[in-house]
C-alpha cells in the first residue's frame, strides 16, 4: 500500500490527528487564555473524531455497518442471531457523548474562571497576568482597591 493510498484510506484518522494537533498547538502556543481554552476544546474534538472513526464495523463484503438502532419490527432474538445485520459499534458513540459533556463542562469551568480573571486582573493575556503577579500586586484579597491597582497597570 503506497503512501497516498494509506493516507486516503484513513482520511478520517488524518483529520482527527490534524484537528488534535491544531488544538494542542493552540494550548501551548497561544498567550491568550480564552484562546487556550478554546484550543483545548478543539484538541478534545479531535479525540472524539478518533473514537467515532473506530466505531465503524465492516460487513464481510466490505460495506459499512448499519446504525445501531433497534427497529420495532425486529425482535430481540433477531438482534443476537448470526444472520442479522451488521451494526456499527455503538459503544464509542456512547462514550463520546459522555466525553462531549465533559469537554463542554471543562470549557464552561475554564470560561467562568477566565471571566473572574478578567475582573480581577483586567486582562486575559497571559504575559500581562504574569507581569501583574510578578510585581506582587496581588498579595491580598479580592477588593475593589486591589483590583484597581492591578487594572492601573494594564
Amino acid at each position: 500500500m503506497n503512501f497516498i493510498e494509506a493516507a486516503s484510506d484513513h482520511y478520517n484518522y488524518w483529520i482527527a490527528v490534524i484537528v488534535m494537533m491544531i488544538g494542542l498547538y493552540g494550548v501551548i502556543a497561544k498567550r491568550n487564555i480564552v484562546k487556550q481554552a478554546i484550543s483545548l476544546g478543539l484538541f478534545q474534538t479531535g479525540i472524539f473524531l478518533l473514537y467515532i472513526s473506530m466505531a465503524v464495523v465492516f460487513t464481510p463484503d466490505g460495506k459499512m455497518g448499519e446504525a445501531p438502532v433497534k427497529h420495532s419490527e425486529r425482535l430481540a432474538a433477531d438482534v443476537l442471531s448470526v444472520a442479522g445485520p451488521v451494526y456499527d459499534n455503538p459503544l464509542p458513540h456512547v462514550l463520546m457523548l459522555t466525553a462531549i459533556v465533559v469537554s463542554v463542562s471543562i470549557l464552561a469551568v475554564a470560561l467562568a474562571i477566565i471571566v473572574n480573571i478578567k475582573r480581577c486582573y483586567g486582562t486575559v493575556e497571559e504575559d500581562e497576568i504574569l507581569d501583574i503577579e510578578a510585581q506582587g500586586l496581588l498579595d491580598g484579597p479580592d477588593t475593589k482597591s486591589n483590583r484597581e491597582k492591578a487594572g492601573a497597570l494594564v
Partner: peptide
C-alpha cells in the same frame, strides 16, 4: 477571595 492568584492557578 483570599488571594486572587487562586484563579490563575486554577486555570
Amino acid at each position: 477571595r483570599r488571594d486572587r492568584r487562586a484563579l490563575t492557578a486554577s486555570l
